[in-house]
């Protein structure tokens, strides 16, 4: 069965269900699966658990899902750029689990790699390690963090092919490769579809084994969060 779908709806509609967990690639709004998120917002599916470094911005990306009240819980790291997030969090309408960014990404990577947990120095002696196992190695203390797996992963890549092999562009790569591995149903939206055999095998970032479905997005917005330029 082929992996290539025509658009977000065809790739996602039969998978979405209430209460599912979804890993989302992207950092800020750089390299986010904007078509998938728009489709999920339109689908009305609810009680979602979202795993993402950030909560994106109001009205865009995960911001749309928060505006619609579709999210039950966010497992994230830096969620502050979204004003509606703050309102929902303060009013208790949203469960939030804050993770150090590297811990969150490693939890996704570990979950996808069959590693149930790992010990890290990060977060020791802070609220992050409260209630978690602490273990000493070589006289230093480490905290046990658990791997994450999700029901669905949605990611954004630059180029893809029919096998699901992916290449990301510049810093739009960020945590997309880790989101790709942490579920067994990964849907990738890409900017360019390459004919099989046209991709340099040595340049592939995410091998197709991690990608179950992909589609070419139409008219990416690729919004910029902080557009700063200098004079030439």
């Amino acid at each position: 069965m082929g992996k290539v779908y025509q658009e977000a709806g065809a790739a996602l509609r039969d998978i979405l269900r209430d209460g599912m967990s979804i890993a989302v690639g992207g950092f800020g709004i750089c390299g986010i699966p904007e078509h998938c998120l728009r489709l999920i917002a339109e689908s009305g599916v609810k009680d979602l658990t979202i795993v993402s470094i950030t909560a994106h911005i109001d009205g865009y990306g995960i911001g749309q899902l928060l505006d619609n009240g579709q999210v039950k819980k966010i497992i994230g790291s830096y969620l502050g750029e979204n004003n509606n997030f703050a309102k929902l969090y303060i009013s208790g309408k949203l469960e939030v689990e804050f993770n150090p960014q590297g811990t969150l990404v490693e939890r996704m990577r570990a979950g996808g790699a069959g590693i149930a947990g790992f010990y890290t120095r990060v977060g020791v002696d802070t609220v992050v390690s409260e209630g978690k196992e602490i273990r000493e190695f070589d006289g230093r203390r480490y905290v046990l963090e658990e791997g994450i797996t999700t029901d669905l992963s949605i990611i954004k890549a630059w180029q893809g092919d029919e096998e699901g092999n992916l290449i990301y562009r510049k810093t739009a790569r960020n945590c997309n490769p880790q989101a790709a591995v942490c579920s067994k149903m990964t849907v990738a939206e890409i900017e360019e579809m390459l004919p099989t055999g046209q991709m340099d095998p040595s340049a592939i970032h995410t091998p197709g084994i991690y990608v179950q479905r992909l589609f070419k997005g139409n008219a990416f917005e690729n919004r910029i969060e902080r557009r700063i330029t200098r004079s030439a």
Binding site: I53, G76, S77, Y78, L79, G80, E81, A86, Y89, I90, F98, P100, Q101, G102, T103, V122, G123, T126, V128
Partner: peptide
Amino acid sequence: IVKGMGGAMD
């Protein structure tokens, strides 16, 4: 309001 630690702890 808590925004999260991002990469600070790492």
